[in-house]
């Protein structure tokens, strides 16, 4: 009986942590500083609010992700990878980065200067 209580508690805490964490992650970050990272190296870094519309091709072992910036938003337009997960992730609008695992590519908001209050809030 006691064991059951503990197990329920642990699973409940895990679920609750997941729900609260998801809500925190899904809030739109106040920074507009975005970086494109591959294998831990920052390939591009820009401020979306002042960036003009453009497309960027990022290559990895012959496979290409075509990243588009339009109306101060960023997303993956096309990808060579079979699963198309990064394309389906749509526009980058939360702390959860766009990830293309086969091509080791990550597009994420960065904590530039002036975004400290977003963390504290």
């Amino acid at each position: 009986m006691n064991q059951k209580k503990w197990l329920f508690l642990i699973c409940g805490v895990l679920l609750l942590a997941g729900v609260i964490g998801s809500i925190l992650v899904l809030r739109r970050p106040r920074t507009s500083q975005v970086e494109i990272v591959q294998d831990g190296r920052v390939l591009y870094s820009f401020d979306l609010s002042s960036e003009e519309d453009q497309t960027i091709d990022v290559e990895y072992e012959g496979r290409v992700n075509r990243i588009e910036i339009r109306d101060h938003q960023i997303h993956v337009l096309e990808a060579d990878c079979p699963d198309q997960v990064c394309v389906n992730m749509g526009w980058l609008d939360s702390a959860a980065p766009i990830v293309c695992l086969p091509n080791h590519l990550v597009i994420q908001f960065t904590e530039g200067s002036g975004s400290l209050d977003a963390v504290a809030g």
């Binding site: 895990l14 990272v37 080791h104």
Partner: peptide, 23 residues
């Protein structure tokens, strides 16, 4: 594994979603 492959800690942001879906 995903964090190690991409060498980007930001990927951990998906952990909360995975916790919910895992439960």
């Amino acid at each position: 594994a995903a964090v190690l492959v991409t060498q980007t800690l930001g990927v951990f942001a998906y952990l909360p979603f995975l916790l919910v879906s895992g439960c």
